[in-house]
């Protein structure tokens, strides 16, 4: 078991390097020199050069093999790619171009609010999706099942944006059932009040896709031999479903849970923006609007790390549920 975990973690290393490489390519190579942006259109060449040196952009973009061969280790190491790797992996992302605040600090303060939105949405959503999917499989082709199928397809066709706009305007605005927007300054019980409507909307938006997906997974499972055996043995449908099928379906469900996680990122983006929740999604939308390159760069990497973390956790859970996989 331990060796499996270690292998899994080691596997992440080339991926992380790859991600850092991608952010470098995107934001430095393709994106170009930030000096023009920061210094302004009419700065003199001299001022730009000075700024370049200050920010470290006078170094070559890529490591130069020539220097390595010449034995100039220091010169070889002084390039933007390595610099980017160094700052990325130590999570020292510099300062926001718009607000001059330390980006790491911004991320730290934004993580809490985002989590208070995504974690409940995830838990509630997952539970509802699996339960409904189970019920559908339990009563295959019944009116319930068919209605759910239709509703889920309708659900995934409605644009998320429209749902949020309507939800906020009517449930909060017109009818005053929930706060319209905002987030308390200090983390406490009042968070519930502000997070309620966005979470409910997020759950509603993801329900269609999730139910559809898990229904397929569970139905696939019900075709397995052991189910036929159990039925033949006379075990009641309920026992079959909840006793055997669910247990075994859990395996593919867990592995596929990661499919749902990206929705949490999207939800986080739109919900935070509309409801003024100062989380990472809001930070990203704000950075895009304000063309704040260092922030977008940082968030891309951090987002990927979070996602990989979630993948790792699911893999470990999967291993716990089905130890056979560790022998692979």
């Amino acid at each position: 078991m331990l060796s499996y975990f270690i292998r899994r973690i080691l596997y992440l290393v080339p991926i992380l390097i790859g991600i850092a490489l991608i952010t470098f390519l995107l934001f430095r190579v393709v994106g170009g020199d930030p000096v023009d942006r920061v210094a302004g259109r009419y700065a003199t060449e001299e001022q730009k050069e000075e700024l370049r040196v200050q920010l470290g952009f006078d170094r070559p973009l890529w490591p130069q093999p020539g220097r390595l061969l010449a034995g100039d280790l220091d010169g070889f190491a002084r390039n933007q790619l390595f610099g980017h790797f160094a700052s990325t992996f130590t999570f020292r992302f510099g300062r926001s171009e718009q607000y001059r605040r330390s980006i790491s600090e911004m991320i730290r303060s934004g993580a809490g609010p985002s989590l208070s939105l995504t974690v409940p949405a995830f838990i509630i959503g997952l539970f509802l999706q699996i339960t409904i999917a189970m019920l559908c499989a339990f009563r295959r082709n019944s009116r319930f099942d068919r209605t759910v199928v239709v509703l889920s397809v309708l659900g995934i066709s409605v644009p998320y944006l429209a749902l949020i706009i309507f939800g906020q305007a009517y449930l909060a605005g017109r009818w005053g059932l929930f706060p319209i927007y905002g987030y308390p300054e200090r983390f406490g019980f009042s968070v519930v009040r502000y997070v309620a409507l966005p979470v409910l909307l997020g759950v509603a938006a993801g329900l269609g896709a999730g139910v559809r997906f898990y229904r397929t997974v569970i139905l696939d499972e019900t075709r397995a031999d052991y189910v036929r055996t159990a039925r033949a043995k006379g075990v009641g449908e309920g026992g079959v479903m909840f006793g055997h099928v669910l247990k075994n379906a859990l395996i593919p469900i867990i592995t596929q849970v990661v499919v749902v996680i990206p929705f949490l990122f999207l939800g986080s983006l739109l919900l935070e923006r509309f409801f003024s929740i100062p989380g990472l999604g809001f930070m990203l939308v704000d950075a895009v609007a304000g063309a704040d390159w260092p922030v977008i760069n940082a968030l891309t990497f951090v987002g990927a790390v979070i996602y990989l973390g979630a993948l790792l956790v699911t893999d470990l859970l999967y291993a716990l549920v089905d130890p056979r996989v560790t022998l692979k």
């Binding site: 790859g18 991600i19 990122f265 999207l266 990203l284 987002g303 990927a304 996602y307 990989l308």
Partner: peptide, 12 residues
């Protein structure tokens, strides 16, 4: 590597 970046983040 590309799959490790959440889609919405990636396209953004």
């Amino acid at each position: 590597t590309l799959q490790s970046i959440p889609y919405i983040l990636l396209i953004l």
